[in-house]
């Protein structure tokens, strides 16, 4: 039922955003309360900032993946793109190159991967699952070749600032995540592009019939998703003070999990930026909390799986009811 209080053009969509993200938001708050009771130092500002910084990389990747999932696609190549962008950035992040150079080159490397993903999916009619699975392998190989299998180290302080610096006490990765989050939120909610993304996910044929150049937009969506993964790769390299060709393994799965926990529906058309961030925070709080409590890492893995399944189950039940 459309919510009459909302004056937005797409009231139904807004309502689903509210209910889903809201439920997960309360789950997050609930987890924080439980953690604080079990282990009071959890709630200290320093620890909370620490958690937000830890999830910022996953959240940035997740925002791109969410866009793909909204269009009923997926992006499995993000973890490998993180590694490729990381080694490309690191190779220019030392010496006397201006700081903008490693950033631009790494983002271009990411964009190239995403452009191929999108073109194969849209024009080659290869399912995105397969196209990006291929890219997952190709980008990882490219990262290993580029770096000769070795980490690239000796990065400049200016470069490392991207991952390890602070502005007004806020870690750089968090600042970047917030900026990216705002841009992506505006892009998805207040532009023609965003409207098309949801339209393609809701009903691709209808989108074509209504004159949207679906193929073109799919290429843009996948390119943007990989650019975000590349950005995450730059941050990771700066944070680790090294571009590692083996970095980012299974990051795509964490990003997809964040997206799904945050209410993105794999059947398409539904998903929000605040949702992904909440999803990433839920995983982050869980990981941080369990380490603080000294719980075995095996149990952590199981709990993560339970939360992912529970989130999708809630989504499925709601859909059946509605």
């Amino acid at each position: 039922m459309p919510n009459s209080q909302k004056s937005s053009s797409n009231a139904l969509k807004k309502k689903t955003i509210d209910s889903q993200s809201f439920q997960m938001f309360f789950v997050l708050i609930g987890m924080c309360v439980i953690m604080t009771i079990l282990y009071p130092p959890f709630i200290r500002m320093a620890n909370l900032i620490n958690v937000i910084r830890q999830i910022s990389i996953t959240a940035i990747i997740g925002m791109g993946v969410t866009m793909c999932i909204i269009t009923t696609g997926i992006d499995l190549s993000s973890g490998s793109v993180v590694a490729l962008a990381g080694v490309v950035a690191a190779s220019f992040g030392k010496g006397d190159y201006p700081l903008i150079l490693p950033i631009i080159l790494a983002l271009i490397a990411g964009a190239a991967c995403g452009f191929i993903n999108g073109s194969l999916s849209a024009y080659g009619k290869i399912p995105p699952f397969i196209a990006t699975l291929g890219m997952m392998s190709i980008a990882r190989g490219a990262a290993l070749i580029y770096s000769d299998g070795r980490p690239i180290t000796g990065l400049s302080d200016a470069f490392n600032f991207i991952g390890g610096g602070y502005i007004l006490g806020i870690p750089m990765p968090v600042i970047i995540m917030i900026i990216v989050g705002i841009i992506m939120y505006v892009l998805l909610n207040h532009t023609k592009f965003g409207k098309y993304v949801y339209a393609i996910g809701g009903n691709q044929r209808a989108a074509v019939a209504s004159g949207i150049n679906v193929k073109k937009y799919l290429v843009i969506i996948y390119t943007l998703a990989s650019v975000l993964a590349a950005l995450a790769g730059i941050i990771l390299a700066a944070r680790l003070n090294a571009g590692q060709p083996t970095a980012g393994v299974s990051y795509e799965l964490d990003a997809i999990a964040s997206s799904v926990i945050g209410g993105t529906s794999l059947t398409g058309g539904i998903g929000t930026i605040p949702g992904v961030i909440i999803g990433a925070l839920i995983i982050g709080v869980l990981t941080n909390g369990l380490v603080l409590l000294g719980v075995s890492p095996y149990i952590q893995t199981i709990l993560k799986g339970v939360i992912i399944i529970a989130a999708v189950l809630i989504d499925a039940l709601r859909r059946n009811r509605g």
Partner: peptide, 24 residues
């Protein structure tokens, strides 16, 4: 006082150690 696996990885070790430093 603490004993965790970080799977040989630098980034995982960083996450684990950060949490240790935030604990008591």
């Amino acid at each position: 006082v603490a004993d965790q696996s970080a799977d040989w990885y630098r980034d995982k070790a960083m996450t684990v150690a950060e949490s240790w430093f935030q604990s008591t």
